[in-house]
């Protein structure tokens, strides 16, 4: 049965646009902070996962490419990916790498380190990305953050894409750090509010 499409069913276009913009001007990476704060704010204020459930453009992109276009084996994800150990472990790892990235950005802001115009894929591979950097009006740190944040987003997109091919289209949702974190917030919030 076809369900009526709503405006938020097209947010995958925004996700795709964002990825493409990063190839032209890295500073657009700052925009994606929205995808970081909106889910958290919804979880903290409203106490639900409406972001994952409705608005997540990346999830929509995966279900479009993996589902509609069929670029997915549509097999079950292995049991270990769904385990709490892996999900929380990946969340911790992801955030450790995220704070490391923030630290490197700080070093550039503080002038202790020069700007590196590379995008680090899978926390390891440094891809030259200088073509997407045309200078910044502000501190070099502003650009360093953009490179770092785009690295995070590109890495998670690549991981999500690989698991989309191997398993079900939205396999990324199973171990998405944002999803794990918002669910954790919702669980905590619900436990505390039902205790009162």
């Amino acid at each position: 049965m076809k369900q009526k499409k709503r405006w938020y069913d097209y947010l995958w276009i925004a996700s795709l646009t964002y990825l493409i913009l990063g190839f032209f001007n890295i500073l657009f990476a700052w925009l994606e902070l929205l995808c970081f704060f909106i889910p958290l704010l919804i979880a903290v204020i409203k106490g639900n996962k409406a972001y994952c459930n409705k608005y997540c453009g990346r999830g929509q992109l995966f279900s479009l490419v993996g589902g509609r276009f069929g670029l997915s084996r549509k097999k079950d994800v292995p049991q270990w990916i769904k385990s709490a150990y892996f999900r929380y472990g990946f969340l911790i790892f992801f955030f450790t790498m995220f704070f490391l990235m923030l630290w490197n950005t700080y070093l550039v802001f503080a002038g202790a380190r020069d700007l590196r115009t590379t995008v680090t894929l899978l926390w390891t591979f440094k891809l030259p990305w200088h073509w997407a950097y045309h200078g910044t009006l502000f501190s070099d740190g502003v650009a360093q953050f953009a490179f770092g944040f785009y690295s995070v987003m590109l890495t998670s997109t690549v991981l999500g894409f690989v698991t989309m091919l191997l398993f079900k289209p939205r396999s990324w949702c199973v171990y998405c750090p944002m999803g794990t974190m918002t669910q954790l917030i919702c669980k905590a919030k619900h436990t505390f509010s039902s205790r009162e």
Binding site: Q3, C52, N53, R170, C186
Partner: peptide, 24 residues
């Protein structure tokens, strides 16, 4: 126990029979 509350099921359900109360 293993549900990640992503909402994929809710989206495809033709009867609107699935909900994710409190994001849990």
């Amino acid at each position: 126990k293993q549900c990640v509350a992503c909402g994929c099921c809710m989206k495809v359900c033709p009867r609107g029979a699935i909900a994710i109360p409190n994001g849990v």
